[in-house]
Amino acid sequence: MKQLVLKDVCKKYPNQLNYALDHINMIVEKGEFVAVMGRSGSGKTTLLNVTSIIDKIDSGNIYCADKEISTFSDKEATNFRKNDIGFVFQDYMLLDSLTIRENISVALSLKNVDSSKIDDLINSYAKRFNLYEQLKKYPYQLSGGQRQRVSIIRAIIKEPEIIFADEPTGALDLKSSEGTMGILSEINKTEKVTILMVTHDVLSASYADRVILLKDGKLHMEIDKKDCGESFYDVISQALSDRGE
């Protein structure tokens, strides 16, 4: 079943000569974990922004589970972000003045989840991701890796159809990066949630099922894990190296 479909998607920023996204056609299956790679300015983040309808496209169509989301009104777009998708960002997007528990509960209270169930849900996820002891703390009291785990819990706890991850390991050290990618991979497999991730990091990309390489706003190459098996990491590295990245 197709989760995300992009048909001839174009996007050009004002005062720019070239397209940020140039006739992109792409399909992401339900439950698939897709990584998007490319050098700076290749259109990775634009692709993530338009598929999560944070940004609008100039032409083409974007479908999510057969619904055309690229024509959504502001209200529909807000509801889509509230109910159907989760975000994991490089800078964690945590609110400094809220405790970890309150940061996570935002996603649930926004979705009007029964308030009596919210604490139990948060507790179970926090225990699962080893954050239970941190729930009363504030974001500044946590390490980068812990903050990213909070951000993942906040994204997954509302049971979204898709998680959009923008450089989730960009601000983390190797150990924390592996921890974060391990969690994303685990929830992809256990919760069957679709993940679309933008990354520079080959190690992070190697956790995905498929890697899409962008170049100058165009879809340049796709690498499928099934085709590569154990050498997936090496194939990605080689592809990037061939492109001079």
Binding site: L95, S97, E102, S105, S109, L110, S115, I118
Partner: peptide, 16 residues
């Protein structure tokens, strides 16, 4: 009062 706290507005406003 969790019922009061876990609302989209109060979840942000009370802690702030």
């Amino acid at each position: 009062n969790k019922k009061r706290l876990y609302r989209p507005l109060s979840n942000i406003i009370y802690p702030k």
